[in-house]
Design a protein around this nucleic acid. Structure first.
Lengths: 260, 260
DNA sequence: TAGTGGTCTAGACCACTTC
DNA sequence: AAGTGGTCTAGACCACTAA
């Protein structure tokens, strides 16, 4: 059945891949053990192991040390459209505010359902500076968050603001309730800088080892880097943000008219 | 200097990664040979080889069989904004039309600078059908292209049209000059179905083995899947397209107003 | 022809999971 | 305790590249 020109690793990987595609190995299903594959195909365990490693790198399979290798379950995918920035979402944000631990100044970390948050004053790098319309090296407020969903990290998002725009606001003195992008927009709105327009830039790549840690990425899982600039109706930039998303959990949708 | 808790592969990979980050190993630079790394770190060649393989999977390094392993050069990245669909680009398309080989019907393949093209009549799958507003299983025209840039494949793009919309046009009877998305828009425009609005959906993932072949992907290179629906001003869908882009060669930019 | 990466075997030890 | 994945050694053959 299988003309044997290919190398053992490929032969095994292809067979497994096909079994996954055909449904013979359903999502969540367990692959044959390394040692079993080895004897089945008449190869070393190392070779069998590398075949499975191939599938892991392709994002089809996930291994659990000491337990086995399993066909990866499809994640629920969240579709991100312009609606997620909708005005009504940040004008009525319910603030379940019970300030348990709110340091008055300096760096601070707060943890709440779905995300951690960390605020600091940092020097603007070139991209931040250009996006916010300030000089490189200027102080800007950085608000870094790691967003989780059902206990799993899905993306990081770090916002930058001009200090004058957010001085004295809950952004620099975080408390529970001021969360995520909606919270940021709300504050800017109250500061007389209502968000009106955003520009987003997307690119995909493999993660750095750091990101693998923070986002608990499976090997072979790419990430999407997002850069966002938010402006007022007068085109004044009020926020620059960059984030790293676990690719398999998101889908981005955009609709726009064709320009002349 | 290096507290030895880590495994050999990690130790070597980390060292190399750092040398790349610091510039000690510049883009295009050659890594030490497998055998050299092996003796340097007192490990087997297999182990050294796997360290390099790690970096390949991260997209930092590229190996050339028989030659060596090299730090990957940064590609020129193309920024894709709404402008690429601009009206003026498909209203004035210069058609250097000299029909060398234009079969009158059926499948056909034409090759020209920058892309191959293949046209066929196929049954609409669910997604195509929903996007074009036809029944699943209906015949639709499929126009598949592989786009290259400086001799390297950068992405595939496959468009689908309702047969009635494109019957008798150069789309179903391709000739040089009718190329890419601009050519398709031009034809639709001439058919009285001027493109007015597009919806794009992006997601990133690791490539299938097929895509690795077609796009000549380096191992560890993710792809971005793009779905596009084009509509007239009356919101009538006239084209559905899906493509697979080499992630490292593109960046997508979108600007839009915040909805209510 | 010499150097290089790719791959495989055979055997081993370890760490983790499951019962 | 048994089963599993992760990793490593030591040695080998192959295919490709470059001079």
């Amino acid at each position: 059945m299988s003309p044997d020109g290919r190398q053992p690793v490929h032969r095994i990987a292809d067979d497994l891949r096909e079994q996954i595609a055909s449904g013979a190995l359903p999502p969540g299903g367990k692959l044959p053990a390394n040692r079993e594959l080895a004897t089945q195909y008449g190869v070393t365990r190392m070779t069998a192991s590398r075949a499975v490693a191939t599938l892991v790198a392709e994002g089809l399979v996930e291994t659990r040390h000491g337990s086995g290798a399993y066909v990866r379950e499809a994640h629920p995918v969240r579709r991100l459209g312009p609606d997620r920035y909708a005005r009504h979402k940040w004008q009525v944000t319910t603030v379940d505010a019970f300030a348990a631990d709110t340091p008055a100044t300096g760096d601070s970390v707060s943890q709440q359902e779905g995300q951690t948050q960390e605020v600091a004053l940092v020097k603007a790098d070139k991209r931040i500076a250009e996006s916010l319309g300030v000089e490189t090296g200027t102080d800007v407020y950085e608000r870094a968050r790691v967003v989780t969903r059902e206990g799993v990290a899905t993306h990081t998002m770090t916002s930058y603001y001009r200090p004058n725009d957010v001085a004295g606001t809950p952004i620099v003195n975080p408390r529970p309730g001021i969360a995520g992008q909606a919270g940021g927009f709300q504050v800017l709105n109250e500061q007389g800088l209502p968000p009106h327009e955003v520009t987003e830039e997307l690119s995909a790549r493999m993660p750095t080892p750091d990101e693998v840690q923070v986002l608990a990425l499976n090997p072979g899982e790419p990430v999407v880097e997002v850069h966002r600039v938010t402006r007022t109706a007068e085109a004044r930039p009020i926020e620059y943000a960059r984030g790293v998303h676990v690719a398999s959990r998101f889908r981005w949708a955009f609709t726009y008219e064709i320009p002349d």
